[in-house]
Amino acid sequence: MISIFPSLLSGTVITLQLLVSSMFFGIIIGLIFAILRINKNPIINKFAYGYSYFFRGTPLLVQLYLIYYGLANIELLRNSFFWAIIKEPYWCAIIAFSLNTGAYTSEILRSAFQTIKKGYIEAAQSLGVTKKITFYRIQLPIAIKQSLPAYGNEVILMLKGTSLASVITIMDLMGEARKVNVLTFKPFEAFITAGIIYLFITFIIHNIIKFLEKKYGFQS
């Protein structure tokens, strides 16, 4: 048990790195696409819907393979400067995870935008507040606050999603556990220890979100 711990720990660091970077890019992508979704232009709207439909309607594993092996299959891409990014499994994973969580985040934010009471916006307008300021100062903060519980779930789902990184050679927590398994044929030690670590991270995320909800919680 003791001997497998250091390698699982180094895997945990990679897992957390993957999670934090993906969530960071995912929020940016999600916000952009949520704004596109509530846009009245049907083409922009459809495009944003198509993006979120694709990434929510297909398994993350397929998306990961498509980006890692699929894109590498395009010679044009291999000869361009993009190859420096696509070549690295780590970046492929972050691209796949960010696009995936971005799709879910955009849905969460969109529904939050749509449930904001019309009265707030009308009140702001009647006070002569510009549309831009209404958006940044009223709509956006309310939407973010309202999204917190659902977003907390999404972070946990993404943590679990990062375990797929091991299929594209990344030695994250899952990858290290699989390695211990194939080298020692002792599946339980490795997988159960990894499971406990994942549970522990889930527990921490859960509590951070709870804390944020309490602090910034929005009662409508």
């Binding site: 092996y69 590498a72 291999r78 190859w83 070549k87 499994p89 299929v167 050679t169 390695k179 080298l183």
Partner: peptide, 27 residues
């Protein structure tokens, strides 16, 4: 992994097909 060939950057794949793909891809 035995250390007989010193320190290398080892990447492991689920199948040989994938090893072949990434060898030709240049990864």
């Amino acid at each position: 992994e035995s250390g007989d060939v010193g320190k290398i950057n080892l990447k492991t794949y689920k199948t040989q097909d994938e090893v072949n793909l990434d060898l030709t891809n240049g990864r």
